[in-house]
Write a protein that binds this DNA or RNA. Structure first.
Length: 557
RNA sequence: GCGGCUGUAGCUCAAUGGAUAGAGCAUCAGUCUUCGGAACUGAGGGUUAGGGGUUCGAGUCCCUUCAGCCGCGCCA
């Protein structure tokens, strides 16, 4: 588009200046063209003169002046080019580049903002990955929103994305055993027995619900079973129920996985053993104190990690190593794991394990999102699964709605802890950013309904004289629309979904301003038609942004 | 002790190494109120935690000090 054309012309100017001896440089610098922060600095600005000065010497402003001189009107694209500040070149582009933006949006529609930079590269995003011993909680919620949106972003950029969640269902894990014991204790209690909960048992209400379900279906049938056998049976039953519940919770949140990968199957299929054998074969495993260890220190980890305990049971790390080995064997070009903050210490060992297996650890990328604090009336709502006062994702959705929940989880950089203000999220006012954004969408729909009422159809951009668009409110809005493709590409590349929520808010604000300044459906037919194109284009860009975020675009509110 | 994240306006947070550090909320003052007022305009408010360094140029990169949160198992 326009920027490639401008960059090409700048390159030509540079070459020409070098040939005439006015500039000296060895390597053609990258031509960065950015919309300036301050619109008094033109439509696009480039720092190429300063880059050249740093590379080959010279005074930036003088270099800039020579480039401007050679650039001329850049083949008719540029109205004015000027040197500013420390050596920036500010370009004022002929206004019809904005018309191209509108025409492009009209043609691309729901694909506007998407690209093919991924070029079909196979990429896997793993997120949520909860223990199947309880419902999805608010703590999982951020991971679900972040992982899902990163997957959406990558898909929008032409990657071949696989969404996957790992089920931590290893039958001999202490967590799952504890869970089974808790269900068992509640079962006994539900039948009126005085039976103690295990130490570190799961106190959540849902455990009692599971027990009651078992009583309802089977009555006292399991009362005489040996405890161990009964616990195992209950673990399996409860796990199935929880997994189904988790899927339901996530579906309610707009999250669906292509693959649910069970840890238990890794043990059953012998893949854990195989991975361990491979590590032994490669000489990266050794025995000590009756246990088998991975020599992860040889690959940058702080200490070696146990693979098989002295009691013969494989550790979580062993299974996780087998899991990542399996991912690599499935042929992904890139693997992204999305983990909570308590897992940051596992990056080094997971990469070490992968490297020890002969896979490229650089293909494995781990995104750590920081914790969520729920605030209600300024007070922190406590979350602890075992204590039972956990906040469930389904409760949060019931409270504030799916859209607000997703938007709030995605508002901040993943690196920052997130304070989730419940009152704000459910307030139906302009203070609530998700309402502000959705309101803009609904308002546009309302304008389009109005146009329909008075019998004006929204024309195609190509059929309209767009040169009547000259007001600041109109031009600012179109410039914002023009940013979307770069924004999505950048948010995808940096794995930063929060750029989208910010863009949505900015776009909504600029639209509201436009709305105040520019009446759309009015007496002047030419202006009405052109503005309808602008409004419809805004609708498209806003809806596309919200779609990537997994948030609905309401026609009415 | 080791490691991670964070520290920016009264509050919550933005800012590919770029120009005068920006939004929202709150406060104060206004607009408009026939396309949805869930809107818009303006003002005040800053030593980007402190110190050093790198360079044309640092909130951003490096070093260091301080503060807050989190993690550091033959748990998962």
């Amino acid at each position: 588009m326009i920027r490639e054309k401008l960059a090409e012309n700048i390159r030509k100017a540079l070459m020409s200046a070098r040939e005439s001896g006015e500039l000296a440089f060895e390597n053609m610098p990258e031509i960065a063209l950015d919309p300036p922060k301050n619109k008094a600095f033109g439509d696009f600005t480039t720092n190429v003169a300063m880059v050249l000065a740093a590379q080959s010497g010279g005074v930036p402003r003088e270099i800039a002046a020579r480039i401007v001189d050679k650039l001329g009107d850049a083949g008719g694209l540029v109205v004015r080019a000027e040197v500013a500040g420390a050596g920036f070149i500010n370009l004022y582009v002929k206004p019809d580049w904005l018309h191209d933006v509108l025409r492009r949006i009209g043609v691309e529609g729901a694909d506007y903002g998407h690209s093919n930079v991924g070029n079909g590269e196979k990429i896997q995003v793993e997120y949520v990955s909860a223990n199947p011993n309880g419902p999805i909680t608010v703590a999982h919620g951020r991971g679900a929103a972040v992982g899902d949106t990163i997957a959406n972003l990558l898909a929008a950029c032409g990657y071949d994305v696989t969404r996957e969640s790992y089920i931590n269902d290893a039958p001999n894990s202490t967590q799952m055993q504890n869970f089974g014991k808790s269900v068992h204790a509640r079962y006994m209690q539900a039948l009126g027995k005085d039976y103690p909960m295990p130490e570190d048992g799961y106190q959540g209400e849902y455990v009692m619900d599971i027990a009651k379900d078992i009583v309802k279906e089977y009555g006292e049938k399991f009362l005489d079973l040996p405890v161990d056998e009964c616990v195992l049976k209950f673990t399996r039953m409860a796990e199935d129920e929880m997994l189904a519940l988790q899927k339901q919770n996530l579906a309610q949140f707009g999250v669906k996985f292509d693959v649910w990968f069970s840890e238990a199957t890794l043990h059953e299929s012998g893949k854990v053993e195989k991975a361990i054998d491979e590590l032994k074969k490669r000489g990266h495993a050794y025995e000590k104190a009756g246990a088998l260890w991975l020599k992860s220190t040889a690959f940058g980890d702080d200490k070696d990690r146990a693979l098989i305990r002295s009691n013969g049971q494989p550790t979580y790390i062993a299974a996780d190593t087998a899991y990542h080995y399996d991912k690599f064997q499935r042929g992904f070009d890139r693997i992204i794991d999305c983990w909570g903050p308590d897992h940051h210490g596992y990056i080094a060992r997971t990469k070490a394990a992968v490297a020890a297996l002969g896979c490229d650890p650089d293909k494995l990328e781990v995104i750590i999102y920081q914790a969520v604090r729920l605030l209600s009336g300024g007070e922190i709502v406590m979350m602890s699964k075992r204590a039972g006062d956990v906040v469930l994702l389904s409760d949060l959705i019931d409270e504030v709605g799916k859209d607000a929940a997703r938007f709030f989880f995605l508002m901040r950089s993943s690196d920052s802890t997130l304070d989730f203000d419940l009152e704000l999220a459910k307030s139906e006012s302009s203070e609530n950013p998700v309402f502000y954004v959705q309101y803009a969408h609904a308002r546009i729909c309302s304008i389009l309904r109005k146009a329909e009422d008075v019998g004006v159809a929204v024309p195609a951009a190509a059929d309209v004289d767009l040169s009547v668009l000259t007001a600041d409110g109109e031009l600012d809005l179109i410039k914002k629309l023009a940013e979307l493709p770069d924004l999505i590409a950048e948010a995808a590349a940096k794995r930063e979904p929060h750029r989208l929520t910010r863009y949505a808010q900015d776009l909504a604000a600029i639209f509201h301003k436009f709305y105040t300044e520019c009446r759309v459906v009015g007496d002047d037919e030419a202006v009405t038609k052109a503005r309808l194109v602008v409004v419809k284009s805004t609708l498209t860009a806003l809806a596309n942004t919200l779609t990537v975020l997994g948030i609905s675009s309401p026609d009415k509110m």
